[in-house]
Structure formats: C-alpha cells, structure tokens
Amino acid sequence: MAILVLLMPFTLMAQSDWTVSDAKQKDSNPIAYSDKSVKAGKVVYLGNCKSCHGDVGKDNGLPLMPKPTDFANQAFLDANTDGSIFHKITDGRATMPAYGAILSEQQRGDVTNYIRSFDPNYKPQASAQAAATPKSNDTEVGAPYFLDVKVDEANSEVTAILMGTFNGEKAPVVDAELFIGIKRYFNNLPIMEAGDVTNEEGVIKANYPADLPSGEEGKGELLVYVVDQEKFGELNQSAELKLQATHPSHFNETRALWADRGNFPIWLMVTYLSIVLIVWGVMAKVVMNLIKIKKIGN
C-alpha cells in the first residue's frame, strides 16, 4: 500500500488509502486477459484516463491532490487485484470520476487489462503466456532505423514504413507505435487509429481527411514520428498534403454595425449626413436671415 500513501487526504472522508471491500478485491476482471483486450484497453485509456494519469511509465500525470497514479508503479500493481482496479474504475472517488456510468463493462475490463499489461509479475488468471512472452522481432531488428512516408492523394491515404537493420539488411520493425498527424496551430491532429502499431511489413496506413481546411492555399503538413524515442531515437518525417483551402473571415474588412469606426455601413453614413445637413442647413438659413434683419436695421 506504500504508493497509496501518496493519495493524501482530500476530504475528511477520503483517507490516505483507497481500498475496496474484500468482496470486490476478490472479484476477477470480467473481461479475460488477451492481447486484443490490452490493445482495446489502450485506446480507452488514451481517450479517458491519459488526461489525468498521463502516459504510463512516464510519470507525467497532472499535479492533482491526490496525485493520479502512474500505472507502471509496481507497488500499485502489487497492491491491487484485477477486481480492485476494475472497481476503482467503476466507482471512482473524489477527483477520480465513476466510470461505471461512462464506460461499458467491456471497456472498463479492457482498461484493467491494459493497466495490468505493465506488470511483469502478472500471471493472467485465465489465459497465461501472452503477456509475459517477449515479442519476437524486438530483439532481432536493430539500429539504424529508417522511417519512410508515402502519400496517396487519390485515396487520401498515408503509408508510414518503419524499417530497421537485421544482419546488415533492412528489415521491417513490427509492433512499433507511430504517430501520424497533421500539423495544427496548437498541436498536431492525429489521423492514425489510437494505439495502432506497425504490422509485419513495418507499415501503418492511415487515411487523412482531405476536406480538412488548411490555409488559403489548402496546404497541410503531415508529420510522422516514432513514439518510443528511447528505443528508436528521434525519428520523424514530414510531407506536404493537399487539403481544403480556407476562406478566412475578414472581420476587419467587413462593413457592419458591429465593425470598427472605419467600416461603417454606407447607408448609415448617408442617412446620418443627410439628416445632419438638412437640419443644420435650416439653422444656417435662419442665421442668414438674422444677418438680413441686422442689415435692415443698419
């Protein structure tokens, strides 16, 4: 429970440890452990959990009180059974929302399995081996690595290929995670499927939205990089994409009632000036009359 000491008192009710009831502890994950489930769990994790818990193993969660757990922490994994993790996700507490209402049982089970996949000591209750077995290609294909990108404009498809070196020859890197996205002002818009990895040929394919507006010339920049920088180093590629042209709204050139003083509506100026001229014209005429009266007096 050492790690849970980090969960500092949030309210009087919430004590430092978060344990679920014994019964729930003993529950098992309703979704059996499998590669497929882990993969699906990763997608759910990225969409729902990452915003607070950060990337697993990088300890980059939000600085909240209590601190969101990084699930690569062995103490946490040791202290919690599958049932415990599943119920914590389901019921929530304090800052941790109750996902029972938001995610399906399948999704919650998948996330539990995804979290569990970071536990090297884990022995899946139902289907064993899969998680523990090292992935075959990893040890064989090594540096230098090559990342290549191809754009198929006709089908709006991007193909990213990650190759490594094996026995002095180029060989595909399998199961590597790539980011494929389009550059935007604040951050890149991902177009690959979340958690997608390279296949046996070292390839990830992604469709890009050709209707995405991107500048007045409709040019966008495609960015591809390898997520695991520790292993592959900084490896990235970019390419130009032909996207939709935008027509910026020229708020500063529009004549409107809300526009600035220079952009008054013409009809308004005409109306205003005519009224002012007529009224002050009459007054001017009256003043002329006064001068006439004065002249007669002299």
Binding site: V282, K285, V286, L290, I293, I296
Partner: peptide, 21 residues
C-alpha cells in the same frame, strides 16, 4: 436685438425664420 427697428420686412423675415425653426 440685432439692430431691430421693427420694419414690416424685418417682421416678415422673423416670422419666416421662426416658422422654419
């Protein structure tokens, strides 16, 4: 009083001006 001497012409102009206003 603009050098008012009360000629009919002055009266005419005055009336006209007041009416305009």
């Amino acid at each position: 009083s603009l050098g008012w001497i009360g000629t009919p012409e002055q009266y005419k102009i005055l009336h006209k001006s007041i009416r305009m206003l």
